[in-house]
Nucleic acid binder design. Structure first.
Lengths: 137, 137
DNA sequence: GCAAACCCTACTAAATCGATAGGATTAATA
DNA sequence: TATTAATCCTATCGATTTAGTAGGGTTTGC
């Protein structure tokens, strides 16, 4: 299941991208427009800023803005920041690999093989979808 | 993330399929062979039996067996029984659909569109993989 | 200097996960 | 028929994660 954090984060990014300008967008505005609890959204946008996807401006007329062109912000990056590993099991994760404690041999593990296929097909979708694509729908 | 329940369930099914016979396989045997806590595995196999994927025989020399040929047991079915919805959000789930409380309009929701793509590509993998495929690896 | 915005830490209620415990029931067999 | 070995079933539990909330601190524009 996709966490609310990720879902809200994607909606917020789309919201910002859709304004189409470099003027910072305020948290309150996004929260209202997308029906997201403001305080929760604050922490999500903070995560996205720390990851380098968003920039921020403090004080009056402050807010958040995109640090790259929407077409250059890929879902692989966004999903990894918000949701963590794309793979369904750590033992097939490219960026967050971890060995299973059960399972002495990955090569003979049927789950491993299946989950590699799922990972690759999901990755294909995320790799080929940018924030620009999201915001144009 | 894939739950341990699902992971263990898949391994157990693979184990049973690999015996290649109709003789019931005991829980203890599977637990030992796949390094799964026996009591936990018991409850998982019970779930699979109630879903009609496994059959069971009680008493001495009892155990679990497949109710269909491995080639007819598809990952779509197994995953839905063990893990629940294949979709990452309920609003794009085919078998467990639910409307989002935020999000007034699904058609204009960027998350919705993205998750439909992910669902379809994952579904494609599960639809084309049977227990026979798993057990032959 | 004050109001409006982001920044940061800590806390919490609820749900889920990964088991474990303890026995009830059933079936083969000696 | 008694024993034993297996599945069946319910309940409980500690740890973790999730989805927030609370309460300010800090910075900036006017």
């Amino acid at each position: 299941m996709l966490s609310k954090k990720t879902k809200y984060g994607l909606k917020a990014l789309t919201f910002i991208a859709r304004t189409g300008s470099d003027v910072p967008v305020q948290v309150g505005e996004i929260a209202k427009g997308e029906h997201i609890p403001q305080k929760f959204l604050e922490s999500i946008l903070l995560t996205l800023r720390k990851a380098g996807i968003l920039g921020s401006k403090k004080g009056k007329h402050g807010g958040y803005y995109l640090r790259k062109d929407p077409s250059e912000i890929l879902m692989t990056e966004v999903m990894r920041v918000l949701e963590g590993p794309i793979a369904m099991v750590p033992c097939v994760s490219l960026n967050f690999y971890e060995k299973c404690d059960d399972c002495p041999d990955e090569d003979s593990c049927s789950v491993n093989k299946l989950m590699i296929q799922v990972r690759d097909s999901t990755l294909e979708v995320f790799k080929n979808t940018s924030l620009k694509d999201l915001s144009e729908r």
